[in-house]
Design a binder for these strands. Structure first.
Length: 112
DNA sequence: TATCTGACTGCAT
DNA sequence: CATGCAGCCAGAT
């Protein structure tokens, strides 16, 4: 069911550590949904506020933010990332902020 | 059931 | 390094 995929995506995004970022495609892979990067974007859009999913830690594979640089959403994303110490240069995060999860630990936490 | 959409990607230029 | 573009595919209508 669609809702199940959203749940898996939200849970995976919840595991991104403070100060780290991941790409849509990476989240899709880790969530067991390879090839569905675009679905990750939709899932974040539908994420219930009470889950407090750190949507701002997810960006494109080239490390650029997925919004027009001047729109309100992009501004908020930049602010949230900067607040966590993520280095941002021209709408791109520094590669040192990329999340490199330990797969064994992930499998344990996600409980598939 | 058929179509349309896009918070994406990889590759070519 | 930046842009363009075809391919992508589940979910929404």
């Amino acid at each position: 069911m669609a809702k199940d995929n959203y749940q898996r995506i939200w849970q995976t995004v919840l595991l991104i550590p403070n100060g780290k970022v991941a790409s849509y495609g990476q989240i899709a892979d880790l969530a067991g949904l390879p090839g569905r990067a675009r679905l990750v974007g939709k899932a974040l859009g539908y994420a219930p506020a009470e889950l407090a999913v750190p949507w701002y830690r997810v960006l494109r594979s080239d490390r650029s933010l997925a919004f027009a640089p001047s729109c309100a959403t992009a501004l908020q994303q930049r602010q949230l990332l900067l607040a966590e110490g993520v280095v941002l240069k021209k709408n791109r995060v520094d590669s040192s902020a990329l999340w490199q999860p330990d797969l064994a630990e992930l499998l344990f936490k996600l409980q598939y």
